[in-house]
């Protein structure tokens, strides 16, 4: 399984990559913002995208909207991992094309369960 992790925090990218390894993901590619994420997606296909919301240059919501416009990514599962926990945030993210949502802070089990669930959908 090949996963793109988009987050401006290298710490959070590593935390997510560790959780991905525990659910059997053998290849993680990383990007520091939405624009870098889009560049990665135009050069290689992925099975799952995990993205933050609040990032410089291009935020996660803009990134997911752009991603959904790419023919190769129209049905790729997207998991958003963010501190934005208001009801309006969650519904806005789902409207943009996010499949599931993890609010920081999270336990390792919560993240693993969400990753497994979004891959099954």
């Amino acid at each position: 399984m090949r996963v793109l992790v988009v987050d401006d925090s290298s710490t959070m990218r590593k935390i997510i990559a560790n959780a991905l390894k525990k659910v059997g993901c053998d290849e993680v590619i990383e990007a520091g913002n939405g624009q870098e994420g889009l560049q990665q997606l135009t050069s290689s296909a992925v099975d799952l995208v995990v993205t933050d919301w609040n990032m410089p240059v291009m935020n996660g919501l803009e990134f997911v909207r752009e991603l959904r416009g790419l023919a190769s990514c129209a049905s790729v599962p997207v998991l958003m991992v963010t501190t934005n926990a208001e009801t309006a945030d969650v519904s806005g993210a789902k409207d943009a094309g996010v499949n599931d949502y993890v609010v920081k802070p999270f336990t390792p089990d919560t993240l693993k369960d969400k990753i497994s669930a979004v891959m099954k959908k």
């Binding site: 925090s9 609040n54 501190t83 934005n84 926990a85 208001e86 609010v103 920081k104």
Partner: peptide, 10 residues
């Protein structure tokens, strides 16, 4: 810091 601010925001 981001997570503390985010949790407080929530």
């Amino acid at each position: 810091t981001n997570m503390i601010a985010g949790a407080l925001r929530g």
